[in-house]
Design a protein around this nucleic acid. Structure first.
Length: 634
RNA sequence: GCCGAUGUAGCUCAAUGGUAGAGCAAUUGAUUUGUAAUCAAUAGGUUGGGGGUUCAACUCCCUUCAUCGGCUCCA
């Protein structure tokens, strides 16, 4: 008997009898064996103890791989469930998966877990880890599994089993006195889990449905060493410093005020200047690419929203109507109906298409109180909206242009990592299947042509059309949707949009609804977090702070400031009676890109001393040289 | 909306039922300074709002609003 095991580097190991993945790892190096978490046998995940009895490709996973982390955290969630069951036997277990950063487990328990209890659970987990309990896999029939979990009184597990076909083989994992329904794989034993931190608790609906009972969730994370855990905790602290809500306060960019209302943003002068720069750039780019700018009202008659269908499908996100001379008006949650009426105000020939109407349109949506989040999720926000109205033949080219445009613009702001999603037809959608297929293919084809990685969100489209979304991550790795490119099979029909074709008869155009930044508020927040508040020169509200060393240089500093302002630089003078070090410190804390220090020497020689934010002193130089240095930064 | 936590001066935070306080910021004065905090004085509060318990409430209870972390939903 001969078994050949091929490893990812192409090397082959020969065995004359069945061998475990762990043994193969040991043959490569004992250190690898120690670090290994699980393995992938011909693409299927297995436990390290799994015996390999025929030729196979084998990949060993350590904590370095995503899969390794996932299994590690999943095993930790089992460990946590064991600790919880030991401490609180009355609690029922439900599910406990690994997530992007750590794991959670949902429990059914009347009282919430307190911080003190979290510490107790953590301590028990450490004790259980020290016992090095093996994670033992058992395979059983569904009937056996039902009996086992019924005997244990774990009703949620029975509910999960219900969804599994009767003939399937079920696996369970047992460590010590705890057994859980689980596909696996798992770590060899609990001692592999070295550093544990339970982070927070929350409520979570059973199976994610708000009609179901709310369970008590515990989130945690674990690492193979304390060093890694500490690094992670430091990362969280660093991320908190980049939080746009903190930066917004520290840099005096915006505020949200109780008395004004939740989810309504006040843009302070500094924030407004940044926003102005974003919007100016946005408008220029749109004009360069054949868009027409439009402006539309903030409210519209109820008839409009009836025609558009919003009162049917979007009402719970709309504010109550206001009465004006016996007519009902609604504040707008979207800009589309207005743009369509601009299109419909005239007849259009196929020769005019595509028509691209763009607007920074402020909309208001009712968001449930628990979901508001700084600038990321608000109740009044400005979409960088546009509607592209085109013929079916123009579709592919327009979609491709849009994706290129979106990525170009996001890159201009410094973003590099995007997550792209293609969402397809959901249940209960409007429009013809053939149209959906064509539009979805068009989206997919463009993404492929541009060689972009994307995930498919099956059935995740809007009810009116498929879409492409681009998401960007915030400081702690939460993804927020920015760009969205959505087809609309609904509104062109509802508003009877038409163009006259080459055949001299009316046709219904295709419409794409899109936002590149998503909303100015959310984009601003993401931008701020991405740069940690250290915005590039072109976006900084104050670009240069002039720092006279004594009152004697105030006039000279004013002269410099006027010259800079004439060149379009945004600068201010710190004329307070403070020491230079103090003024520098303040300018650094305000993250102003450049400081221009002028003392006796500079004034006498018509020079300035430049200092760059976070970089320090750049030396004394002539005015022109300083300008050149400053403007060489974008 | 649901689960949990939190709400004290502009900001960051003290004060566990017994006279609301500190640092920074602000104002005023002094200081005229060479690369991340000069010194002093002054002012700043219905302790988120409302109600209750108590001789007495920042502190305990109820309610409401907001914020934070999740769930659900979404740009």
């Amino acid at each position: 008997m001969s078994i050949s095991i091929t490893l990812p580097d192409g090397s082959v190991k020969q065995y004359d009898k069945p061998v475990s993945a762990l043994a193969v790892a040991t043959d490569i190096s004992p250190r690898l064996a120690d670090a290994s978490i699980c393995a992938e046998l011909n693409g299927k995940l297995i436990d390290l103890e799994h015996m390999i009895d025929s030729d196979a490709n084998l990949v060993l996973h350590t904590f370095k791989s995503e899969i390794g982390k996932e299994v590690y955290w999943h095993s930790t969630s089992h460990l946590m469930a064991q600790a919880v069951k030991q401490l609180y036997p009355e609690v029922l277990v439900t599910i406990g998966p690994a997530i992007e950063q750590g794991f959670y487990y949902d429990f059914d328990r009347e009282t919430p877990f307190t911080d003190e209890e979290l510490l107790l659970i953590e301590k028990r987990m450490q004790e259980l880890s020290a016992m090095a309990l093996p994670y033992a896999r058992t395979e059983l029939s569904k009937a056996e599994a039902i009996k086992m979990f019924a005997d244990m009184g774990e009703s949620y597990k029975l509910e999960l089993l219900d969804a599994i076909p009767d003939t399937d083989i079920i696996s369970s994992y047992r460590q010590g006195d705890f057994v859980d329904l689980c596909r696996g794989p798992h770590l060899q034993n609990t001692s592999k889990i070295k550093a544990i931190k339970l982070l927070k608790t929350s409520g979570a609906y059973w199976r994610g449905d708000e009609k179901n009972k709310m369970l008590k969730r515990i989130y945690g994370i674990s690492f193979p060493s304390n060093k890694e855990l500490n690094e992670y905790l430091v990362f969280l602290e660093e991320a908190a410093k980049r939080d746009h809500r903190k930066l917004g306060k520290d840099l005096d960019l915006f505020s949200i005020n109780d008395e004004v209302g939740a989810g309504l943003v006040l843009w302070h002068p500094n924030g407004a200047m940044i926003r102005h720069q974003i919007e100016s750039y946005w408008k220029e780019e749109h004009l360069r690419r054949g868009y027409k700018l439009v402006y539309t009202p903030h409210v519209g008659r109820s008839n409009l929203w009836e025609t558009s269908g919003h009162l049917g499908f979007y009402k719970e996100n709309m504010y109550s109507p206001m009465q004006v001379e016996d007519q009902e008006y609604y504040i707008k949650p979207m800009n589309c109906p207005f743009h369509i009426h601009i299109y419909n105000a005239n007849h259009h020939s196929y020769r005019e298409l595509p028509i691209r109407l763009a607007e920074l349109g402020t909309v208001y949506r009712y968001e449930r109180s628990g979901v508001l989040h700084g600038l990321m999720r608000v109740r009044g926000f400005t979409q960088d909206d546009a509607h592209i109205i085109c013929t079916p033949e123009q579709l592919d080219a327009e979609v491709e242009k849009l994706i290129v445009f979106s990525l170009d613009m996001l890159k201009h702001f410094g973003f590099k990592d995007f997550m792209i999603y293609l969402s397809t037809q959901p249940e209960g959608s409007v429009g013809e299947k053939a149209d959906w297929d064509k539009a979805t293919e068009s989206l997919a084809a463009s993404l492929k042509k541009l060689d972009l990685d994307y995930s498919v969100d099956e059935g995740g489209g809007a009810f009116y059309g498929p879409k492409i979304d681009i998401k960007i991550k915030d400081a702690i790795g939460r993804a927020w949707q920015c760009t969205t490119i959505q087809f609309d099979f609904n509104l062109p029909k509802r508003f009877n949009m038409q163009y006259i074709g080459a055949d001299n008869s009316p046709h219904q155009p295709f419409m794409i609804h899109r936002a590149v930044l998503g909303s100015v508020e959310r984009f601003f927040a993401t931008l701020l977090e991405y740069h940690g508040g250290n915005l590039p020169l072109w976006l900084s509200p104050v670009q240069v702070m002039l720092i006279p060393i004594t009152d004697g240089q105030f006039d000279y500093a004013s002269e410099i400031m006027e010259k800079m302002q004439a060149m379009g630089l945004r600068c201010e003078i710190d004329s307070r009676s403070e020491k230079m070090g103090y003024k520098i410190r303040e300018a650094e804390l305000k993250k102003i890109p450049f400081m221009c220090i002028v003392g006796k020497n500079e004034a006498a020689n018509n020079q300035v001393t430049l200092r760059q934010h976070t970089k320090g002193d750049l030396g004394t130089m002539d005015f022109d040289a300083a300008i050149q240095t400053i403007t060489s930064h974008k």
